[in-house]
Write a protein that binds this DNA or RNA. Sequence first.
DNA 1: AAATAAGACAACCGCCACTGA
DNA 2: ATCAGTGGCGGTTGTCTTATT
Length: 335
Amino acid sequence: MGRPPCCDKEGVKKGPWTPEEDIILVSYIQEHGPGNWRAVPTNTGLHRCSKSCRLRWTNYLRPGIKRGNFTDHEEKMIIHLQALLGNRWAAIASYLPQRTDNDIKNYWNTHLKKKLNKLQAGTEGHSKDQGSSTSSQAISRGQWERRLQTDIHMARQALRDALSPEKPSTLSSDLKPADGFLISTTKPAQDQSTTTYASSTENISRLLKGWMKNPPKSSSARTKLAKTQHSFTNMVSGFDSTSSEGATSAANTTSGVELSDAFESLFGFESLDSSNSDLSPSMSPEASLFQDESKPTLISDQFLSLIDKWIFDEDAAAIQGKDMMTLDHENANFF
DNA sequence: AAATAAGACAACCGCCACTGA
DNA sequence: ATCAGTGGCGGTTGTCTTATT
């Protein structure tokens, strides 16, 4: 007997998620907690594959996800980590707790790759201009590999230092994987504070705002929207007995912004910033990240040094102990 | 204004690792 | 020790938006 598919291929909806579906999924997770994804489509009535539900949650609805532009610092982190780890996006994402691996992967593929190619091309062009090969340019493959090894070793050491329990405070959070994140996927919902899950509604609220700001033009889509509002209102009223007031106001308005604002106030979640401050510093398997040899991208020694310089010159303070979360907050304030 | 190309990002697919029976 | 079930990961594709002609 073959292994059954993770979901019944027939009758499974694909494509972009609607706010309706998001709300259903979030409300279910609020109640039951993330995990047991196989049961999610059955229990929620969502015509989605369990995998799709999980991905939607982890990549979009999960609390504490930061969207929008990547900061310079994030960009540099990604570049350096990619150079060290290769395309291990999940590992890289563990160092940028507010970003998902998918987000980082996309950003790498659409922005950073091109940027680095340009940079590299510029570097090569520059060396060509200089004509003859100097001794530093003629570094043998073995030499640059050794330097890469040294790089990796240094990073490993830094990581070990950072994770060392003897140095808890600021240092430990410097280059700290955060794959424990806000919610352990194995923890039952009861263990979580209400606001933890509720904060994920901010993502939905944002989605709704976007949805309302750019309402679908087709009549069918408008019908869908109306339906969304309706079901949303129903859900809100059934979600929390204290929410009847908000539900009423949501039902009484046709303004999407008001609707989503009401949504926000209903769940009473705090700002992303505050929720992020809850990030638990879990000790993670990534502590052994470098144990199995990573697949460093084969970039030239010269280029790697360039990146190193680029990253570490500017952010020496950050790398040498400035709290990463503080940095992230600073970055967040930038938006 | 319309058509087309390019870019950005959300979502899917297939493979792999882990876990429990 | 084996195997089925499940979740996680990385690569890829599809769709929507924006820019250009």
